[in-house]
Design a binder for these strands. Sequence first.
DNA 1: TTCCCGAGAT
DNA 2: ATCTCCGGAA
Length: 298
Amino acid sequence: MRETVRRRLAAWWEVNARDLPWRFGRTTPWGVLVSEVMSQQTQMSRVVPYWTEWMRTWPDAAALAAASAAEVITAWGRLGYPRRALRLQECARAVAQRYDDELPDDYETLLSLPGVGDYTASAVSSFAFGRRVPVIDTNIRRVLSRVLLGVESRGGAATRTERDLAADALPSDVAESVVWNQSVMELGAVVCTAKKPSCEICPIAGLCAFLAAGRPGLGERRTRPRQRFQGTDRQVRGIVLDALRRRRTGSDASASGLPRDEVEALWKDHAQLDACIASLDDDGLIDILPDGSLTLPR
DNA sequence: TTCCCGAGAT
DNA sequence: ATCTCCGGAA
C-alpha cells in the first residue's frame, strides 16, 4: 500500500517536479541551504529571482561572510522577514570559520547553525547530502495526514503523532527516502494544497484516505486567527527598512543617515514608530546615528 | 482572510 | 505552547 504510494509519487516527481535552479545537482549544498532559508514562509515563485542574484553575488559561505550587513539587507529586498538575511550571514560566517567554508552534512551540526531550525537542517541533510532523514514541513504534514490518516493536520507546531508518522513513512532505502521527501513536499505545494486540493489530477487519489472519507474538514481554519497586517509593527518595520534600502540604492547615496524628520514622516503614530526603530536596532537591522538619523548597518 | 518548503524567544 | 517576525497573492 505505502509502497504503491511511494512508487507513484516517485514516478510523478520524475515528470512533474518544478525546475527550480537549486534542484537536480545544479548547485552546491550551500546553495541548497540558501534556497531553504529564503523559502521559509515564502513562496518559491518569489524566491527564484532573489536566489539567482544572491548566488551570483555570493557563490559560497566565505563570500557572504565578507559582505557588509547593509549589502545583505539590501539584496534581501522585499523577500520579507529580513532577520533571516542577517542570520544567513551569521550562518555563513560560522561555516567559513568553523568548517573551512564547507557545509556540514549531518542534521545535528546543521541544526546548530544560526537560522537553521528542524525543517532546514533536515531538508539540507536530505536534499543536498542525500542523507536518510525525515523532513517535516507544512506540506508534508498535510499530505501525510490526509493520505495516510484521512484527516487534516492542525496548525501550529508539529505534533508527536505527525513526527512519528513522517519517520515511520520514510522509505528505508536511502535514495528512495530523498525522492520521498521531495515528492511528498512537491505534491503538497502543487496538488494537495491547503484550501483547494486538485484531487482530480493527483497521482495517489485512489489511495488517499482523506479523499475516500469525503475530505472531512476541508477548508476549516487550521491555524489560529492571524494578526492583521495593516497597522502592525511588521508593517511599520517594513516601511522603515524599505526607506533605508531605497535611500541606499538611490543617487542620494548616504554618508549620513535618513534624517530624523524624514523618518517621522514615514508613520503617523510616533510611539509605535519609535518602538519599531528600537526593535530594528535590537535586531541589528539598522544603525541609529548620534544625530538621530538612520542607516543600514555598516 | 489564509497560506506560503519556519526560526527563535518567551 | 504561543508569539512575533514581511510581503505577495489566491
